[in-house]
Amino acid sequence: MRTYLRHPFWQAAGLLVLAYLVIAFVIPLLPGSAMVPSSVVLQYMATVLVGILIWVSDEEARWTQFKEPLHEVLVQPRLKMVRNGLLAAVTLVVGCLTYSQVRASVAAPPNLRSIHPAPPPQITFRGKTITLVGLDNPLRRSGDMAAHLAVGRRVYYQNCVPCHGDHLDGQGHFAAGLNPLPANFQDNGTIAQLTESFVFWRVAKGGPGLPREGTPWNSAMPAWEDFLTEDEIWSVVLFLYDQTGWKPRTWEVSAEAAK
């Protein structure tokens, strides 16, 4: 047992198994975590494998020692059974992998949907052209903030809450039925990363206004420009940031603008 533990080949094999266990079973157990998608497991395992191969081969002595068991299995007459078993196992594994690749399944294939596609430089809002580049929330500069927030709160609870939820976490009553799921505003990957003009664009144009990268399954978000006024949308944007505590991404002050 101890000789196995000291041997680079078995150490490498052990590390690989350990890494798999950690990635596939320990990470999902951590608080607030969830299962790791198989594409990511594959990616992590490939990285770990490369790292292990580097470790076993970066020193001549270790490399020679590492190759020993492999070499022996391939040539030693006494290991004929192991050799045959290994060849059979490799064939079987390749066969199974091929089968699982080509097998028709009922699940929809994994899709790549760009959550934050590039916004257009300008949009048409009820016939009025709004330039999104460099645009800040106009309500931040005018009027009473508390009043704006009150309007935003009303708009949110009248329109958004069924999907985006009471906690603004995308866990509304209807959320389970939607694909893609409603955005979770509490997450640091959504509105926290975006400018207010981007959020305005998404609210105003909704799922139908998503560019092609937003496909294959377009979001069910309605295009609110048909139902809300410009100021109502800006107030609800204000409300989202105020309620979650995130700060919107701000525009970089360009040299020309400063002049």
Binding site: P109, P110, N111, L112, S114, P211, R212, E213
Partner: peptide, 10 residues
Amino acid sequence: KIPQVQSEVP
């Protein structure tokens, strides 16, 4: 291997 997205002309 990753899902393919082509940027279409609008």
